[in-house]
Amino acid sequence: MTCWETINAYAFRAIGFGERQLPSTDFTLCQQFTLIGSGMIWNIYFGLISLLTGFFLATLLALGKGSENPVIRKPSEWFIFVFRGSPLFIQFFFGYFLFLSLKSQYSFFDPFTSAWLGAAVVLFLNTSAYSAEIFYGALQAIPRGDVDAADAYGLAGWKRFRRIIWPTSLRLAWPAYTNEAIFLFHSTTLVFFSGFPASQQMGDALYYASYFADKTFNPFIPYPILAMYFILMTLTIIGIFGIVNLRLNRHLPNDRRGRMKFRMQVIR
């Protein structure tokens, strides 16, 4: 099989197109590159979907945590505490088995036991909690003067939030949120190692990398390939978030712009 044929056969193997049978002997570099790259589809899918949906819940939770009403504040605090205080790995397991027992009661939960929905829900809740903590911190850090200025202009309520508070907090939170996005994408690799089954060997990048490592008993090829893909993805995220950061800061003079500094906040 030439490399071009391999790419044709396996490029979309992770989502069920192309050759059904995974290569089982005489592994070539090309096969490893193609299949691990194909697995990245899942990582990108999980990362994107939970990041996009999580953003909204995170904003609500951050507002909730900052609220003066304990009926709103307490549940938000607990939600954030539960998801930030426990390992994502255990959350995946618990989520999977929870969906499994719900499924036996209500057929509505059927799709939740497969990774594409169930794991996405867990990741969505998890990233919401982490981002909410970031947004909450940013909301607390809004300069008093900005709010005063808004008041002076007669802005109040929703308008004040929409025009002043929200954009400012987003601008303050953005570097940390970029970091969160990077590690969210990294943690998508846990999905297929934590209960959620990979049906018909359709798994993510790490799933295929460990498949090759197990078969060839040589970890020195598949894992560096995986690392390369993830470094590329990290750079892409930094690039995209950097563009957004520029836009969020475009009204500020150069020296007052929020710098993108990357701190590690590492695994969950």
Partner: peptide, 20 residues
């Protein structure tokens, strides 16, 4: 090393690599 690559990949990698 740990900035750009998921740590769990390192876990899976080192266990075999160290053994070998």
């Amino acid at each position: 090393i740990v900035r750009g690559v998921p740590d769990i990949a390192f876990f899976l990698f080192f266990v075999i690599a160290l053994d070998q």
